[in-house]
């Protein structure tokens, strides 16, 4: 086994692990990422003049765990989408990838789904209220025999005995609350991705 093919095998093994973790990105993006890192590893490993297996090992160690590196690319995609596009669907699509990679990503996705879901619900109820005043609204009712209350925001015939909480004020309240929640959720996703990226930005001295 020659030094060059040994070094090649180690590089390929690393890049294959990275490729598997980058699954959700576009194939041409993945290809570009892998080519750039292959070039980086070759340059770095040959810095002393000759390509050595130890050089490749050091270059790979400096890049870090491939699964974590993949998370950095993916959280960056969240940042780009949230900064450039800001549409909930596109932010969620990128969060789905992060969620598949780490517990932190999973919780960020969960909270974002709840945030976007609640925002869109308030928005829709406010929009439907003028057309279906008896069905759209925020309803509260008491369960028979116990003291628990249920609250329903939504559309459809309200249960017997339910009381409407906001009446027509649901229109301005729902619109502003819905819009606010959508904005807040995008900011939350952006903030989380940024925190993750920053936590890994600098090397320990």
């Amino acid at each position: 086994m020659t030094v060059a093919s040994d070094a090649q095998m180690k590089t390929d093994a690393y890049l294959n692990r990275l490729r598997e973790s980058l699954g959700g990105l576009k194939p041409e993006e993945i290809g570009e990422i892998l080519e750039e890192l292959r070039s980086h590893i070759a340059d770095k490993a040959a810095m002393g003049g000759e390509l050595t297996v130890a050089g490749v090992d050091a270059a790979l160690a400096a890049l870090g765990n491939p699964e974590e590196l993949a998370q950095e690319y993916v959280t960056d995609a969240v940042l780009v989408r949230a900064e450039v596009n800001r549409s909930p669907a596109s932010v969620l699509a990128s969060l789905f990838r992060w969620a598949g990679m780490s517990v932190a990503g999973f919780f960020v996705l969960l909270l974002s789904v709840i945030g976007y879901g609640a925002g869109i619900s308030f928005f829709l109820v406010a929009l439907l209220k003028p057309f279906h005043p008896d069905a759209a609204g925020l309803w509260i009712w008491r369960h028979s025999g116990d003291v628990t209350y249920s609250v329903r925001l939504g559309f459809g015939a309200p249960p017997a005995g339910a009381r409407e909480l906001l009446g027509w004020t649901i229109v301005p309240v729902g619109l502003s609350l819905g819009f606010g929640l959508l904005m807040l959720t995008t900011h939350f996703a952006l903030w989380s991705a940024r925190q993750y990226r920053r936590s890994r930005a600098l090397r320990q001295k």
Binding site: I33, E36, H40, A62, G64, Y73, R197, A201, L202
Partner: peptide
């Protein structure tokens, strides 16, 4: 800078 960070 950690090397893995600069590329992303």
């Amino acid at each position: 800078v950690s090397e893995g960070t600069v590329y992303p």
